[in-house]
Amino acid sequence: MPGLKLIEEFLNTVDERTFRRHGENHVARDQLSSPQALSDWLEAHDLGSQPADLAAATTLRTALRQSLLGGSESKNGAVLADYPLRLAPGDAGELRLASDSGRPWLDAIVETVAAGAATGDWKRIKLCGAEDCRWAFYDTSRSGRGRWCSMEVCGNRHKTRTYRERRSASGGPDLGSVDADERA
């Protein structure tokens, strides 16, 4: 999982969360808003300080996020096909998966995803099941069937909403006019 932490953080450079919590709207944002922002992110994650290709980074990030949603559109497959892998000797004589895009930082991300896919750990990287969240997280549940980035936030909001819908359908008492998203 240590390498996949990098991928989780890369995927979360785009924050799509739009829900309300404690009365405040969460504002969606993209950390990779400029080539300099990407260079700063890469340097902060020890991926070098070379010139960064913002378009390549956001295209790869989007394709990886789509793959987590089960997006198997041909466009997504075509984007991922742009990152071929080969076997290369490692430092200790072992074999490793290697990418050679000419951008070492991009190769490091692609190689980490490939290694995670090869070991089966990639299936533990997920996007939150809440439509208004989609935060990437590493599923640590025993069964590997976790749905929420945070049970305390997104899981609770979902369960509260479901409970209210059941109560409303059964003619139960009104639980107030506060939206379930605001209570969580």
Rank of each mutant, 00 (worst) to 15 (best):
R147T: 05
Y83V: 01
V153E: 12
G102H: 04
K126W: 10
G71Y: 03
L80E: 04
E152G: 03
S49H: 11
G102C: 01
G102P: 10
G144L: 02
F137V: 08
A57C: 07
E43Y: 02
R157E: 05
T162W: 14
D139H: 06
V110A: 14
Y163I: 13
L127D: 06
M151R: 00
K123E: 15
L106S: 07
A115M: 13
H45F: 03
C154M: 05
A55S: 13
Y138I: 14
D53L: 01
C133V: 08
W135F: 11
E131C: 03
A130G: 04
C149G: 11
G172Y: 06
G144Q: 05
V113K: 01
P104I: 01
A57M: 01
A57R: 00
A81M: 02
S74Q: 15
S74L: 15
G90W: 10
L47S: 07
S49N: 15
R164F: 15
G77P: 00
I125D: 01
D139P: 07
T162N: 09
A57T: 04
R61A: 08
G71F: 10
L87P: 02
G171Q: 11
A56D: 08
K126T: 11
A118S: 15
R61P: 09
A63R: 01
S99R: 02
S99F: 02
L87N: 11
R145G: 02
G116V: 08
S74R: 12
S67Q: 13
S49A: 13
A118H: 15
G77E: 13
H158M: 09
T62A: 15
G90D: 13
G90K: 09
E152W: 03
Y83P: 09
P84T: 02
G93L: 07
Q66R: 10
G77F: 00
R164V: 08
G129E: 12
Y138K: 01
P84I: 00
S49W: 03
A56Q: 09
D82R: 08
A114L: 08
R124T: 12
L127S: 05
E94D: 14
K126M: 10
P104E: 05
N156M: 11
W148L: 04
G146P: 09
T119F: 08
R147Y: 02
R124G: 06
E131M: 09
R157L: 13
L95S: 13
S168P: 00
P51G: 01
S72C: 04
L127M: 07
E94K: 03
D107L: 02
R167L: 14
C128T: 09
D46S: 13
R142M: 05
K126F: 07
H45C: 04
A114T: 07
R96S: 06
R145E: 11
S72A: 14
R124Q: 10
G48N: 04
N76L: 05
A63M: 04
A57L: 00
S72M: 03
A117G: 08
M151N: 00
E152Q: 14
T160Y: 08
A117Y: 03
R65L: 10
D121W: 05
R124W: 14
R65C: 10
N156C: 09
R145Y: 03
A108C: 12
E111K: 07
R65T: 12
S99H: 05
A52T: 06
G93A: 08
T140G: 00
G70H: 01
